[in-house]
């Protein structure tokens, strides 16, 4: 038996090495952020239905950074990203001669949540969030009464996503305007752990994407956020869409390889399906994200058809309207 098994396996390995590594059906390869994944999954599911098996789409979750590594080596057609491409990734793509088209596909509202039994927070300002989360707060800001006079004498327990996530990166940029937060908070890559943490501790405060708040409204309370002395705005689909929930609304993106978009009609069809208002308005909302305004999808579609390559982001920027971004010329 063992002898037969070894003969078969030797044959298998030989055959595999000599077999051509190509596939019969048209294949669109997508990889990247796990935040964008639910949207791309929904798009892929529906797109495959309309293509009736002619085109297949695969979606991975290597993370925004891991996704760009593959994308800039030309291994994927599309990269999901929960933040704009970074300087180092721009360079990597350039070295490998990969040109890309940057397309915002939805908005996510970072939601600051507290326990429902917390009766002292009616709103929070970005300055107060910064006071809680900045690196200098480590081991110093440990009590709610240090945040605002009038807050009770209670320990402050912080929960947030892991430092590898795009969500964390965006929060740092929008609130701290530095490189990182304090280190002494409870971090988890699984947002459901954060939900449990905040839901079971009166003194807790945490942040994550709107979808996780929406699904757990009974267990959590969202804090309205005020920015630059403006009035406090609650996180919601409407407030993210009309750009009043700032600076914690962020666009999320797909990046499309220009060469494959030019060469492969089925990649082109998938991207056009993705940006079509008839699909995006419905599907993005269904999976718990905020669709862009209709006009923004039209502008993105236009940018794609013109094959406008490059990124419109220059370093860290927060609180810019999506239509303003789309109208910008890339550098």
């Amino acid at each position: 038996m063992l002898k037969r098994a070894s003969a078969v396996s030797a044959f298998a390995v030989l055959a595999a090495i000599s077999a051509p590594m190509i596939h019969a059906a048209d294949l669109v390869k997508v990889d990247g952020s796990s935040t964008v994944f639910p949207i791309t999954e929904a798009m892929a599911e529906e797109f495959q239905k309309t293509e009736k098996g002619k085109t297949q789409v695969t979606v991975g979750i290597s993370g925004t950074g891991g996704g760009f590594k593959k994308f800039c080596r030309g291994e994927t057609d599309i990269s999901d990203a929960s933040r704009p491409i970074k300087e180092s990734e721009v360079k990597l793509c350039k070295e490998n001669g990969i040109e890309y088209i940057e397309l915002p596909v939805a908005l996510d509202a970072l939601t600051v949540v507290i326990n429902p039994k917390n009766d002292w927070v009616d709103r929070l300002s970005v300055e107060e969030l910064k006071k809680m989360w900045e690196p200098a707060a480590q081991d110093k800001i440990t009590n709610w009464n240090q945040i605002r006079p009038g807050f009770p004498d209670r320990p402050l327990k912080l929960f947030g996503p892991g430092t590898d996530s795009g969500t964390y990166d965006y929060f740092v940029e929008a609130v701290i305007e530095g490189k990182s937060t304090r280190g002494d908070f409870t971090a988890s890559e699984d947002d459901n752990v954060l939900v449990q943490g905040v839901a079971s501790d009166v003194n807790a405060l945490g942040f994550f994407g709107l979808a996780y708040y929406d699904e757990n409204q009974g267990k959590l309370k969202a804090a309205p956020i005020s920015w630059k002395g403006g009035k406090a705005v609650s996180p919601s689909v409407e407030n993210a869409k009309n750009a009043s929930y700032q600076p914690l609304s962020r666009p999320i993106f797909i990046y499309v390889n220009k060469k494959t978009a030019d060469e492969k009609a089925y990649v082109r069809r998938f991207v056009e399906f993705y940006l079509d208002n008839r699909n995006s308005q419905k599907l993005v909302k269904e999976v718990g994200y905020v669709p862009l305004p209709e006009k923004a999808y039209d502008m993105a579609m236009n940018n794609f058809k013109k094959r406008q390559t490059g990124t419109v982001f220059h370093g860290s920027e927060v609180g810019i309207g999506i239509e303003e971004l789309l109208a910008r010329a890339p550098k």
Partner: peptide
């Protein structure tokens, strides 16, 4: 996951 297994694959 490290070698790049996918998450959504419908074939």
């Amino acid at each position: 996951i490290t070698i790049g297994a996918l998450t959504f694959i419908a074939f």
